[in-house]
């Protein structure tokens, strides 16, 4: 395949960037998208140009490092697929492919296609955990968890923190990421003691960094793990309840 790439190049945070055009010849259809970029980079180095910086690590769709806006879609044209698992067979010979970094105020560009997603860590820090100090845990089978509940928690917990939801959202909202973690922990019996504090702190921290949810639903198809919008409804409900509930009664059933 012969492709034309239009790639966003930016030398550092806060400086002007621009699209550069590169010809990519001899691309094999079994290559992954990132391997195609590797090859382009290898040729750039040989020609004495600095390679394109892009984030990537595991290359099997689980670490959440990679994330490119490809032809206007987060993670490119294939659904439920992170950029690293996108393969060139999804493209045709002669295509022009436009590659941009994620764009959100709270995902500042570090260089070229690399952005800093530290804001996600701040949200987790605020409450995306269950406080269970090492050594204090009870026997694992003491608390049965209905399979449906456990499965729903797992569905939400599958989030890889790649930021595609923010990138795809017309509002630059971090709802799907935050809701996935809220849902994962708030659904489980183990997460109940911190349930209201968790959702309150996480939502308010999220709002310090990201936009609001207009229920466009754009995040769901962009998510490589297919995290459901239902989690956002659940987070909205729990946040409202967190403002209403008498938490002193949390021990009652």
């Amino acid at each position: 395949m012969h492709l034309t790439l239009r790639v966003w190049r930016q030398d550092g945070p806060g400086v002007e960037g621009r699209f550069e055009t590169y010809e990519a010849a001899g691309i094999h259809q079994d290559m992954s998208f990132l391997e195609m970029l590797d090859l382009v980079n290898e040729r750039l180095v040989t020609a004495g140009h600095e390679p394109i910086a892009f984030d990537h690590d595991c290359r099997e769709g689980i670490c959440g490092s990679c994330g490119l806006m490809i032809d206007g879609r987060a993670h490119g044209p294939q659904g439920s697929t992170a950029t690293c698992q996108l393969h060139m067979r999804e493209f045709s010979d002669g295509d022009t492919i436009v590659i941009e970094p994620w764009r959100a105020t709270s995902f500042p560009i570090v260089r070229d296609l690399v952005v800093d997603r530290g804001a996600f860590d701040r949200i987790i820090e605020a409450g995306g955990y269950i406080g269970a100090p090492t050594g204090s845990a009870p026997e694992a089978n003491l608390t049965p968890v209905p399979k449906e509940t456990s499965d729903a928690a797992m569905d939400a917990a599958a989030c890889i923190g790649c930021g595609a939801c923010v990138a795809a959202c017309p509002n630059g909202a971090g709802q799907l990421f935050t809701a996935a973690k809220v849902a994962h922990l708030n659904l489980l019996p183990q997460g109940q003691p911190e349930r209201w504090m968790r959702v309150e702190r996480m939502v308010e921290t999220m709002e310090e960094y990201f936009g609001s949810c207009s229920n466009h639903g754009e995040c769901e198809p962009a998510c490589p793990k297919g995290i459901s919008l239902d989690n956002i409804a659940l987070m909205n409900r729990d946040y409202l309840l967190s403002k209403i509930r008498n938490r002193k009664l949390g021990g009652q059933r």
Binding site: A140, T143, P144, V145, P146, K147, S150, A153, A157
Partner: peptide, 22 residues
């Protein structure tokens, strides 16, 4: 043995049977 207890308490969604046990 303790690792499983610890991780379950942290909310790791290990696979479960319909009875709710691991």
């Amino acid at each position: 043995v303790e690792i499983i207890d610890q991780c379950t308490a942290q909310g790791v969604p290990f696979a479960r049977e319909y009875g709710g046990l691991l």
